[in-house]
Simulated scan of single mutants.
Amino acid sequence: MAKLAGIRLPDRPPYRDLALAWLREQAGRSILVQAKDSRDRWGRVSARVRILAASNHLDLGHGLVEAGLALVDPGLEPAFCQPELLALEATARERRLGLWADDGYNPIDVGQVDHLKDRVGSFVLVEGRVRSIGEREQRTYLNFGGLWAEDFTIIIPRKTWKLMADRGLGAEALKNRWIRARGILQSWQGAALSIEVPEMIERLEGNRPPR
């Protein structure tokens, strides 16, 4: 069994059904599979799948994201090797294709505390301004409000924080900046996301809300 690397299918109809229908249309075609040796806890390998018959060797993950039928999700991969997926997703979101026509999938503002609490356990995109940063020995915390027990927080392991700093996304680059983060929302002194790879955080242009 395999999962398409770097993406996540929608979690509810009709978009999940549309994504599965899109994939079924590719059945019976010759493909090229590139997969890792390791398996996840469900016994699946993470793979990229390309249609060889297509003139441009269509990548299934790319096709789904471009059509607005999947979200970019690096998951627990040690490294994210498809940064182009973020650009494809951004275009689909701007054009409101597929799931992006549903406000339930669009980025949640950190100020919508009740909305965040309702989405705990779901994969979400969250946007807001980093108010303060707490660097500890094992983890770094990006805080988005003054009430640490209630407001949204991003938790970054030491290894990931070092990678971010090496790429110019350290404390000076993020404090007071608007960012977008993605992942499984968890309940932790309010709501929080744990970031495993640097690409799960995107720095947005300007110092004001993007919308």
Rank of each mutant, 00 (worst) to 15 (best):
I7K: 02
I7Y: 00
L9G: 03
L9M: 04
P10W: 04
P10A: 03
P10D: 12
D11S: 08
D11P: 01
R12V: 06
R12G: 08
R12D: 10
P13E: 10
D17N: 13
D17R: 08
L18W: 15
A19I: 07
A19Q: 02
A19K: 04
A21M: 08
A21H: 12
W22I: 10
W22M: 02
L23G: 00
L23A: 00
R24S: 15
E25P: 03
E25A: 14
Q26C: 09
A27V: 13
G28N: 12
G28H: 11
G28F: 12
G28W: 04
R29N: 04
R29M: 07
S30G: 13
S30H: 13
S30A: 13
I31R: 13
L32W: 15
V33P: 04
V33M: 06
V33E: 07
V33D: 10
V33A: 07
Q34T: 12
Q34C: 05
A35E: 13
K36N: 14
K36G: 06
D37E: 15
D37C: 08
D37A: 12
S38R: 11
S38K: 13
R39K: 12
R39Q: 14
D40H: 05
D40L: 00
D40G: 03
R41D: 10
R41T: 11
R41E: 14
W42M: 14
W42F: 15
W42Y: 14
W42Q: 07
R44E: 11
R44A: 07
V45N: 01
V45L: 08
S46H: 08
S46W: 08
A47P: 04
A47G: 00
R48A: 04
R48L: 03
V49I: 02
R50P: 02
I51F: 01
I51R: 00
L52G: 01
L52D: 09
A53D: 15
A54F: 09
A54G: 04
S55Y: 11
S55C: 11
S55V: 07
H57D: 14
D59C: 05
G61I: 10
G61A: 14
G61R: 07
H62V: 10
G63W: 07
G63P: 02
L64R: 05
V65Y: 13
V65R: 05
E66I: 10
E66Y: 15
E66N: 10
A67R: 13
G68L: 06
L69C: 01
A70W: 09
L71R: 08
L71E: 13
L71W: 12
V72A: 01
V72K: 00
V72R: 00
D73F: 14
D73K: 02
D73M: 06
D73R: 05
G75F: 00
G75V: 12
G75K: 05
G75T: 06
E77M: 13
P78T: 09
A79S: 10
A79Q: 09
F80S: 03
F80E: 09
F80D: 01
F80H: 04
C81A: 15
Q82S: 03
P83E: 02
P83L: 06
E84S: 10
E84A: 09
E84Y: 14
L85C: 04
L85S: 02
L86G: 06
L86N: 03
A87E: 08
L88W: 08
L88D: 05
L88N: 02
L88Y: 06
E89Y: 05
A90I: 07
A90E: 05
A90P: 00
T91P: 01
A92R: 01
A92M: 09
R95L: 07
R96F: 11
R96M: 12
L97E: 04
L97S: 05
